[in-house]
């Protein structure tokens, strides 16, 4: 069975220069998509990854990560739209890096496709009526 999960990896300073993502690909056949990253050499860092592969590879990969000392968390940040506040202007359309907003060509309603959202939060302050909210 194939799984795909969004996780947050916190790297202690000593691991920042280790090629950990490379091992996930090479040794565990996992695909990864970096959604957000902040890594400064000699300091701590974090990466938000979407990690996919077979359930077995995924579990082995996570065990490998845990053993290296990387702290693993599920991505709990969630962007939701406050429907009372959204005016369907569409200012969010070109701000979202993953194309999670679409305009219905007939009704001109702005649709929020939550599955595509990576919770980067770019839309929060780009929304004039502040309809996009970040929940933890």
């Amino acid at each position: 069975m194939k799984v795909s999960r969004k996780i947050v990896l916190h790297f202690p300073a000593r691991l920042v220069e280790e090629p950990i993502a490379y091992r996930l690909v090479k040794d565990y056949n996992l695909q990864f998509n970096i959604l957000k990253a902040s890594i400064i050499p000699d300091s701590e860092g974090f990466v938000v990854l979407e990690l996919s592969g077979s359930q077995e590879d995924y579990d082995r990969g996570i065990r490998f990560l845990a053993k290296t000392g990387v702290k693993i968390e599920a991505l709990s940040q969630n962007v939701v739209r406050n429907e009372d506040k959204c005016t369907h202007c569409g200012a969010c359309l070109t701000i979202c890096p993953t194309g999670a907003f679409e305009v219905d060509p007939i009704t001109r309603e702005v649709l929020f496709v939550h599955d595509r959202c990576i919770a980067c939060a770019n839309c929060i302050k780009a929304c004039p009526p502040r309809a996009m909210e970040l929940h933890f």
């Binding site: 005016t87 369907h88 202007c89 359309l93 070109t94 305009v103 009704t107 001109r108 004039p128």
Partner: peptide
């Protein structure tokens, strides 16, 4: 503009609106 992209020279530019057509309707 409403098609989602405009062309400027050879460049295709994605568009977004500040005016809500749905609310205008």
């Amino acid at each position: 503009l409403k098609s989602g992209t405009i062309r400027l020279g050879s460049k295709s530019i994605p568009t977004a609106s500040l005016s809500s057509y749905r609310r205008a309707l």
